[in-house]
Amino acid sequence: MAYALQQLINGLTLGSMYGLIAIGYTMVYGIIGMINFAHGDIFMVSAFIAVTCFTLLAAADVSSIPLALMFVLMVTIFFTSAYGWAVERVAYRPLRGSTRLAPLISAIGMSIFLQNTVQLTQGARVKPIPPVIEGGIELWAAPDFTVQIGWSQLLIIVTTVVLMTAFTWMITRTPFGRQQRACEQDRTMAALLGVNVDRTISLTFMLGASLAAVAGVMVSVYYGVVDFFIGFLAGIKAFTAAVLGGIGSLPGAMLGGLLIGLIESFWAAYLWAEYKDVATFGILCLVLMLRPSGLLGRPEVEKV
């Protein structure tokens, strides 16, 4: 029981990070109808930026943890959204209105490019950073097992909830959100009504990248190690989360992320840890076969 509770906490933490990345997939898919294959690698880039920032701060002897976190978050978000913008500008915008496969291929190319850029410029070895936040709260001391929620876990879950609320508010209540939804529905009409479509799409990519950046900072805080290959699996799992929740739906992405995180934790804890990725892919296939519109997505009527 205690063990299961601990898995629940771990799963929620993991799921929050998947959810944050998944929102980037869902927003981009919503607005231009393509899978931003390079999104996982944007997340990976952000984790490296975060590692560099933490290392800089450690060298500068900054002792206030909240201050350090705020600084790292801001810097990471700034640079990562620049990457998000550039990826869209270089690899996707010229192919808008082209065949369906072309942007996907260039996205895969972009993903390979980013991975190798990081490998070349930052090195192929894993990057460890000293733990930023230590300790936690003991929730329940069962005789054989102590359930604990780490401060870093709490931070991740709370940050995710706050960001989710803020994003939902932004998409449903602000002029930008309206423009974004307008572009999702009909890009040509939105342009005719004076929405700057290019800018809206660029901003969407930057916002998606920002959330990936938050996830990148969290990963480096939580695990303390980063390498150039983390983007691939994290990206696929986050995409699975987005599909599971219903692609195009923000709450769906979050829900999907949490579910994937929980499934992965429990699967690894109770079944076979080495097959935990198979579980994720299996779920992806099942969801797409049985309910292609996802849990919270609107079913699509085939237009003849």
Partner: peptide, 10 residues
């Protein structure tokens, strides 16, 4: 290789 994929597509 990655860069070529992007550039040739574009």
């Amino acid at each position: 290789f990655g860069a070529a994929m992007v550039l040739i597509m574009v």
